[in-house]
Structures are given as structure tokens and as C-alpha cells.
Amino acid sequence: MFEEPFRFVEAIANRREYIENELATGSPITALAYDRGIVLFTMGRDRQKIFEVYDRIALGALGHPGDIERLRMLAIELASTEGFTRSAADVSLRRLVNYSLSPGLKAAFEQIYGPPYLARLLFAELGASPSTDQFVRVDFDGAIHSNGNPALKTRPGFGVLSGTKRSETRMNAFLTQEHRSDLSLTEAVRVARDAWVVGHLALIAKDEFNPDAPFPTATEIHAAQTTVLTQAVFEAALLDRTRPDGPAYRTLDAAELAGLQG
């Protein structure tokens, strides 16, 4: 096989297609800034998809639970040992993703005799101020999509993750239009939920993709959400900037979520 470069390219392409098919049903996750921090939101059926990594880093993940678990564990171990040997302030999402996760994911993806990771990750890191909040998506092949590039003209205060490119594109466009970083928590959860529905409708759409199609109306979003909620529940967590130090991560329990829905 190795004397035939073409077969390597073909094998990689097959592998990409296989993984993308496996991930294509993954339920969307959004992370977005609100006036007091960052909220992560998804709707799920049977397993937890939003996790705490370190004091100011949270993770949303979709894919195979076994692979998510290995990546989650790795991220927690790296962050914890760094925080222990140096200090909590030395734990950085940029370093975690760029130097550890991405190279490893790429290697696993391209070593075609070994198993790849069937997972996509969305990290959110709470900065000292909203202008340094980071939202980083890491794909199964190690590709990184970050809002943290200093060369960016605008720095979006949100990140999205979904099963397909189409769904992510739609959610991105929707949030570019709807999201402001001074939203209250209630408004932020509503925007995150609407973005989730937009992503979900794009996931299940069978027609030709038209990126300029109008977004569903409030009534359509509500109807879609009601259908989904017959089988799924909200899941949300916060990175709370008002906590003075220590862990900023907190999950929203069912009662709080019920109060925020509207």
C-alpha cells in the first residue's frame, strides 16, 4: 500500500467519508457569550454532552461515546497536571488544543491501520473579559476552527458544533445575525435554543442546500422544538464570569432550565 501514494489518498478519503457519515446525526451544540459569561446549550436524549474540563474551560462533544470519553479524559488530565504544577491561570485552551489534541487527532486519523476518533469537540474558554473569550472547534482530523485568531476582523462571541457542515454553516449564519454579547441569560438560552433548532432542521433537511434560504420563523422554530422535546431534554451549562476564582463551570438543573424557557 505504501508504495502507492494514490491508495493512501483514497484510503484517507474513504475514511473521511465513513467518519462524516457516522457523525452526521450528531445533535448540534452551541456555546455563546452572555452578559455574565458563557452558556453552552444542546438538546439530547440519553447521554450527557456538555462537560467541565477545568476552572474556565468547558467542552461540548458529539460522536462515539467511547472516543469522546478518551478525548475528554485526555483534556482533563492535561489541564489538571498543568494547573497543579504551575497554576490555574497557566492552563490555556490554545495550548491544549494546538499542541496536544490537534496533532494527536490528525495522527490517529491518518494512521489508516489504527482506529480514528469518531468525535467532534467544541471548547469554550472564559477569558478575563468578553473580548478574550475563546470558542474552538476541533474536528476528528485535527482541524481547528477558532475565534481566537488575532488577525480576524470581527471576533464572534459564539461557537457551534453539529453533525454536518451544512448544519454548522446555518447555525453560524443564524448566530451572526441574532447574537449579541450583552444578552441576558434568559435571552442567551433562547437564542442558543433557536440556533439549535436551525441546526437541527438543516441536519434533517433532504433538499438541495441553499445557504441564502430564510431562517425559520418563530412559529416554525417553536413547532420544531415541541416535536423534538417529546423525546429529548434541554442540557445547558455556564461558565460564570462573576465567580471570583476557582471553577467557573456550573450545570443548569431542570428547574432553572424550565424557568429560562419561554
Binding site: R70, M73, L74, E77, T81, G104, L105, A107, A108
Partner: peptide, 28 residues
């Protein structure tokens, strides 16, 4: 890949439950 230090061979239990154990594995 920097694997979780806890992960030895396929099929083995994944993840430390104990932080000192992790520090020991990394020589810290």
C-alpha cells in the same frame, strides 16, 4: 498522540479516578 496517561492497552480501564495516581504516572 499524547494519550491519557491512564490508558495502557486496548480494553484496559480508562481514566484515573485518583489524581495522585495520575501525578505519579507523570512523575510529578
Amino acid at each position: 498522540m499524547p494519550r491519557p496517561a491512564s490508558e495502557s492497552v486496548a480494553g484496559a480501564m480508562l481514566g484515573f479516578r485518583d489524581f495522585p495516581e495520575l501525578l505519579q504516572a507523570r512523575g510529578l
